[in-house]
């Protein structure tokens, strides 16, 4: 029996979260197969086959999979699942949409947002926005799991997997893709950036002006609180937290962020945390390695200037 990873790609290569899932899956010591869906996965499959620890790359190409729908991909996963002991994917919006649907059709549970795996079936996962860590044993014969990518290192190249192709099930008649808006920016991917510079709602209209130059100097990404996104200062995919993106960069700079539990849930595993807030009692200081009690409108430009020196 093997492991099936629902692997996200951008048409050319695997997303980093898929590589992190590949290394997470090594815990089971079973052959790892990747499932790639799309309208043309040739290039992504060729690059995925070179990742260490992958035994097989399964391509499923069809025009209707150019923008994969949960209804279609879940049906595909169900059709393959009986040959596998484990179906796993990173806890991204892509897999969160698909795997619970597949699991229900298979009458099995999903263990979501796993940060530690003890083979064969014991998992650590945060609950209550990370305030509690639960150890969970899954009694299902088929294990369906999503993993928190930032808890695992990305698998490197060094493999030589076989590539196979399977036909796609026909498109479902219940849903159709209409359009997408990609929040294009030249910033690195938030979830995997080595540095994240985040701001709260107090940055106001100056959100980008204050944070982007600093992020660029540090070759990092900009993140935001829910309050900053709700206010329209930052796009939704910049939200860090319980219900946004989970990050764990080498350096996280939080400016004008109060430190609500829902925000901390998304960043408290960062290696070094810097907090800048004019309220010395702000909760964010409780997780900060370096706290600076200061007005951010002065401190951020000063920090940006100091770093260029």
């Amino acid at each position: 029996m093997s492991i099936l990873i629902l692997a996200e790609h951008d048409g050319q290569q695997l997303r980093k979260a898929a590589r992190q899932t590949i290394s997470a899956a090594q815990a089971w010591g079973l052959p790892v197969h990747l499932l790639l869906v799309g309208d043309d996965t040739a290039a992504a499959a060729a690059s995925a086959a070179k990742v260490a620890g992958v035994a097989r790359v399964i391509r499923v190409d069809a025009p209707h999979l150019a923008h994969p729908l949960a209804e279609d991909v879940a049906a595909l996963v169900v059709s393959l699942a009986r040959d596998y002991k484990i179906v796993v994917a990173p806890h991204t919006t892509f897999a969160k949409n698909i795997l619970p649907r597949a699991a229900a059709l298979l009458d099995v549970a999903v263990v979501a947002d796993v940060i530690g795996i003890k083979a064969p079936a014991t998992y650590a996962r945060p609950i209550y926005a990370g305030s509690v860590l639960a150890t969970v044993e899954n009694t299902d014969a088929l294990q369906v799991v999503t993993v928190r990518a930032t808890s695992f290192d990305a698998a490197d190249d060094g493999g030589n997997a076989e590539i196979t192709s399977l036909p796609a099930p026909a498109a479902n008649g219940k849903s159709r893709w209409v359009s997408e808006v990609r929040n294009e920016s030249d910033q690195p991917d938030l979830a995997s950036a080595p540095v994240v510079v985040s701001g709260g709602r107090s940055l106001g209209e100056q959100f980008h002006q204050l944070l982007t130059p600093l992020a660029q100097k540090l070759e990092g990404a900009v993140g935001a609180t829910r309050a900053a996104v709700d206010a329209g200062y930052a796009p939704n995919d910049w939200q860090v937290g319980q219900t946004g993106t989970i990050v764990a960069p080498g350096l996280y700079i939080a400016a004008g962020i109060s430190g609500a539990a829902q925000h901390l849930a998304g960043m408290k595993d960062s290696k070094i945390i810097v907090a800048i807030n004019h309220d010395p009692d702000a909760a964010i200081f409780s997780v900060a390695d370096y706290g600076l009690v200061a007005d951010l409108f002065e401190a951020l430009p000063a920090l940006t200037a100091a770093i260029s020196k």
Binding site: N97, S175, E180, V181, R182, N183, N236, D237, T245
Partner: peptide, 11 residues
């Protein structure tokens, strides 16, 4: 729908 890369609309 809010997704990791921005948003997506389905019918």
């Amino acid at each position: 729908r809010e997704v990791d890369t921005g948003s997506e609309t389905v019918a």
